[in-house]
Simulated assay, not measured.
Amino acid sequence: MRSAMAKHILVKTKAEAEKLKQRLAQGEDFARLARKYSQCPSRKKDGDLGKIFPGQLVKPIENIIFRKALLKVHGPVKTQFGFHLVVVYFRS
Rank of each mutant, 00 (worst) to 15 (best):
H74W: 10
K68H: 12
A17P: 07
G82T: 09
R91H: 10
F66K: 03
K45L: 15
A34D: 03
V87E: 11
Q80P: 00
S3Y: 15
F53D: 02
G82S: 07
K72N: 07
D48A: 13
D46Q: 11
S42M: 08
E62K: 00
L33T: 11
A34C: 06
L33R: 04
D29T: 10
Q26I: 00
P54H: 01
F90M: 08
L49K: 09
N63M: 00
V11I: 06
P60T: 10
D46G: 15
Q26H: 12
L33N: 01
E18F: 05
P54M: 05
F81R: 14
V87F: 02
L85E: 02
Q22K: 14
A17L: 00
F90G: 02
H74M: 06
Q56E: 14
L24M: 10
A31P: 01
C40I: 07
A25T: 12
V77F: 11
S42W: 10
E62M: 03
I52H: 01
I9M: 04
Y89R: 03
Q56V: 06
K68A: 06
P54V: 03
T79P: 03
D48W: 02
A6Q: 04
L49Q: 11
C40S: 15
R91E: 14
V77Y: 12
K19M: 12
I64A: 03
Y89T: 13
E16L: 09
H8P: 01
C40Q: 06
R91K: 14
I9L: 03
P60L: 00
V88T: 11
K45C: 11
N63W: 09
K44H: 13
V11F: 04
F66G: 02
Q22I: 03
F81K: 13
R67K: 13
K68D: 12
R43A: 12
P41F: 14
A34P: 01
G75D: 06
E28M: 05
G47R: 01
G50M: 01
A69S: 13
S3M: 11
F30P: 05
F81I: 01
R43Q: 12
I52Y: 02
A69K: 15
K78C: 08
Q56A: 04
K19I: 13
L49M: 15
K14H: 07
R2C: 00
H74A: 05
A31F: 04
K21W: 08
Q80W: 06
P41D: 01
P60S: 05
E62G: 02
G27I: 13
K7N: 08
R35L: 09
A31W: 04
R23A: 11
S42Y: 11
V86D: 07
M1N: 15
A34K: 00
E62Q: 07
A25N: 08
A4R: 00
K45M: 10
A15C: 00
L33H: 04
V73M: 01
V86C: 03
L85G: 07
R32L: 09
Y89V: 08
L20I: 15
E28P: 06
L10K: 05
P76R: 02
A6G: 09
K72V: 14
P41Q: 08
I61Q: 02
